[in-house]
Design a protein around this nucleic acid. Structure first.
Lengths: 354, 354
DNA sequence: TCTTTCTGCTCAAGCGCTTTAGCTCGGGCT
DNA sequence: AGCCCGAGCTAAAGCGCTTGAGCAGAAAGA
């Protein structure tokens, strides 16, 4: 029998009260900066607490109505899509930065799909586990806002467009439509008239925003050969779609990819087909990362600060937890980093390489 | 004033007791499959609970000594190193898979460094937040096992070599030394005699294991021009080190990279220097991912199942939480996926490209 | 001097659950 | 008939914290 040394006992408020010679309530008042104790006592209590290494038990706190000091984040993307994307860990590290300052924990869960995700919210709520949640990958026709409303769980939606119908939710978003417009503007100025947009998962709010922004821009300019093709964000589909669009009769002269992974896979696919980048076809990735500088030519990319995005979202959530009003905040529009994969459109002809 | 609909109230055991016409204790017994109630009552109680959508409050549970139903995971790598690596999200998704089955939550935190990480453990322990933790990136001379021992916090170390001095900790690890030996074996058979190992962060246990395994293999075979160079895992350092070793007088004919990111950056750097892969120099990445198939030539890589790794680790932790003994389990050694970046060594000469 | 009003503190209840001790039956034993 | 016993339940305490009510004593007003 492994004679286990008994784990050290956690000090409680009772211990502090005894050592400081006051009642438990006095300790509570003192440590929570509430009126009701003299400065002298407060100091003494604080010192004793410090010395004992006391920390409030979140369980007890939560039980007496203070909330769980925890926020939740669930990720509902297919497992294989998870890994390659650098966005999430960045986002999470930004989130943590602000949560940590307030000693808030982050409860993390990966789910199968949105229904599963909803079940997780319900469970978290019923189990008293979280005080609020961060919702990522908002969708068109999303069941989550309604649910969170019903549960009364404070939440901030990350990446969703402002949503009038859920005044309880905060929203942090980037102006994809504006970015898309600027992007098309730039490509148009370079002479590009045929553009393909290799989009992300259909149904995701920002995917749809980008698609419709592109369509709007095309119509405004009278461009008829502009299209969006949704994918699952994977390198495989990125490459496949690239091949498909480039093999068409009048292939596009510019490709916009909704993430870095597909863009990289796309240039490789293009190269195999004999298209050289950017001479035959320009490429821009929506999402910058080290990846974009790992391939030749270096990829032009729309860059945003995902860490800051996370910070902003977490800040909004803490504001909500503090009883503040729900807000909608827009983070800076991603800016185009021009590298070597974009250039003037090939002059007329079929657009196919020789 | 936004007339907020009051959030639905969570049902408690008292509600169930009232509706089922029994005492709270009977409810507790019934729902926890404890003897003390008849099957009839048990069924009735269960039905009522179900119907009310009851879930035990983790706070209350934790407070009455049952544990927090949560395990912790802290990541202490520099923020910029976080993103590109596909390993962690895979690992986490494996972990979740088994935790979710048991309704265990995963509390996630990113820390600055190991000291910070230790502080997090202390806090979690004092706050009663977690029942156990998963420790990643074990180091040589690691303060964490001692701390966890002291706190009596069940833990499983992921990726550490078996550690006799901490019988309380479980350990899940891969045989890097064996893998390295097999790898060198293969390269040697292809005629490679000069090998450079672009290693990961120094101080990380598995980095050191790989380095010393390589050294041992080299000595065994009498190879003198074999070396390991530690890096920070980043594409930048990967490329820089690659340039440095290839510009040396008698450059290596084979490069082993400790992750996929550096390998990709490395081939790009090699190409710039006029080295062609695999004709002039063979490349293998320790860690397979989509990345390895995004560059030309496709990279040969050591592949392991990170999701399964996570599952195994989580399983060990739950076993520990159930009061089981600490164990050391070895996951399958990663296997080499041969793609296009490895080939026979260039025949004698300086080894430099023409 | 006696009342009022603070200030600084203590008491005790309560949050939702577990758990131990105890209570009440009905049935089997002698 | 008297007794014991176990099955099936209830009562109540306790986990660590917050909080509203209450209470002593000093300072201030009459």
């Amino acid at each position: 029998m492994p004679a286990k040394r008994p784990a050290a006992r956690r000090p409680t408020m009772k211990d502090i009260a005894r050592r400081a010679g006051v009642s438990e309530s006095a300790v509570s008042f003192a440590l929570n900066d509430r009126p009701g104790v003299s400065e002298i006592t407060r100091d003494r209590v604080r010192r004793v607490a410090e010395q004992l290494g006391w920390r409030p038990s979140t369980a007890a706190r939560a039980l007496s109505g203070e909330g769980a000091a925890t926020v939740g984040l669930v990720l509902a993307r297919p497992a294989h899509t998870l890994g390659v994307d650098s966005f999430f860990l960045q986002l999470v590290s930004g989130i943590q930065e602000v949560l940590a300052r307030r000693h808030l924990g982050l409860l993390f869960q990966v789910a199968q799909d949105v229904d599963d995700e909803c079940a997780v919210y319900r469970r978290w709520w019923a189990e008293h586990r979280v005080d609020g949640v961060l919702v990522v990958d908002p969708r068109t026709d999303d069941p989550r806002p309604d649910l969170l409303d019903e549960l009364g769980l404070p939440a901030v939606v990350i990446g969703g467009a402002p949503d009038q119908s859920h005044p309880g939710l905060s929203s942090v978003w980037a102006d994809d439509a504006g970015a898309m417009a600027a992007l098309v503007d730039g490509l148009h100025a370079l002479g590009h008239r045929r553009i393909a947009h290799i989009a992300g998962l259909p149904g995701l709010a920002h995917t749809e925003r980008r698609i419709s922004a592109l369509r709007a821009e095309a119509e405004r300019r009278g461009l008829t050969e502009v299209r969006s093709v949704p994918t699952d964000y994977s390198d495989a589909e990125g490459a496949a779609v690239t091949r498909r669009v480039l093999e068409a009769p009048a292939p596009p002269t510019a490709l916009i990819y909704d993430n870095d992974v597909m863009a990289v896979a796309g240039v490789a696919a293009a190269a195999e087909l004999g298209f050289s980048v950017p001479a035959d076809v320009s490429v821009v990735a929506w999402e910058d990362s080290a990846l974009c500088r790992m391939v030749k030519p270096w990829l032009s990319a729309l860059s945003r600060d995902s860490v800051e995005f996370g910070r902003t979202a977490a800040t909004e959530l803490t504001a909500l937890l503090d009883g503040g009003p729900a807000r909608t905040v827009r983070v800076p529009v991603p800016r185009l980093i021009e590298r070597d994969s974009t250039g003037p459109a090939r002059s007329p002809g079929t657009g196919r390489p020789a």
